[in-house]
């Protein structure tokens, strides 16, 4: 019980670490995911191929393996001396982007084809059609799966703890190594995760309701 009160700063840092990792990689995943979804439905074959390759590669690779690549290969050939936080964000963000992409793509396919045809027939380019006509109408369908994806991302961020990031899992390991009762540690850690995941589902439920009245 006392392990929380005695180590409040550690728990707080862990919580904030998980929060920051989740937020940063969610933002990255969202941007990349929408972009790659655009590639996958684009009329340009090389872009479509790139999108398909991206999703196939990242979705089917174990996340731990991506972390290994991010921490041991990326600094070696690309950016030496990058902080563990950035590397973890890259691994999580890239991985999650493949799931976001597929959710967005399924949303795009729920928008009737006639909407895009109408947009093209008044002279809008592919980008304009996607941005102004198709994606806004796809958003509502994409919200529920996105919520699940970001909750999964929150929990996946625990892997970053094993790669010298300060976050909840990392803190729990630190404290249990010091010999504190594991049960209490896990309880507090679990509660901290729940705070984040419940917040995510709350935000998305709000978004869903907001978008419902917009029509």
């Amino acid at each position: 019980m006392n392990v929380l009160l005695d180590h409040l700063p550690e728990f707080r840092d862990g919580f904030l670490g998980t929060l920051a990792l989740t937020a940063a990689s969610a933002a990255l995943a969202l941007i990349l995911g929408v972009l790659i979804a655009g590639f996958r439905v684009s009329p340009v074959p090389p872009l479509r191929a790139f999108g398909t390759a991206w999703v196939t590669l990242l979705r089917n690779t174990p996340l731990t393996l991506l972390f290994l690549v991010a921490f041991f290969v990326v600094p070696l050939i690309l950016f030496p001396g990058v902080s563990p936080f950035v590397l973890a964000t890259l691994a999580l963000g890239f991985y999650t982007s493949s799931f976001v992409c597929e959710a967005v793509r399924s949303g795009i396919s729920t928008v009737p084809l006639g909407q895009a045809e109408a947009a093209r027939s008044i002279g809008m380019t592919f980008m304009q059609t996607l941005r102004m006509i198709v994606l806004p109408q796809a958003t509502r369908t994409v919200i529920p799966p996105l919520s699940s994806i970001f909750i999964a991302l929150t929990k996946n961020s625990a892997i970053a703890g094993a790669f010298s990031n300060t976050e909840l899992f990392n803190v729990s390991k630190l404290l249990s190594d010091k010999g504190f009762a594991i049960g209490w540690i896990f309880l507090w850690i679990a509660l901290a995760y729940l705070v984040i995941t419940f917040t995510i589902s709350g935000i998305f439920r709000l978004l869903e309701r907001r978008l419902e009245v917009a029509r």
Binding site: P112, E117, A118
Partner: peptide
């Protein structure tokens, strides 16, 4: 397909059987 086609399409009005007004 591309920018030039888009420009040309702007000069050709199209009315569809299913209206296809932008629903949002």
């Amino acid at each position: 397909e591309g920018r030039e086609l888009a420009r040309l399409r702007a000069d050709v009005g199209m009315v569809f059987q299913s209206f296809n007004l932008f629903a949002h």
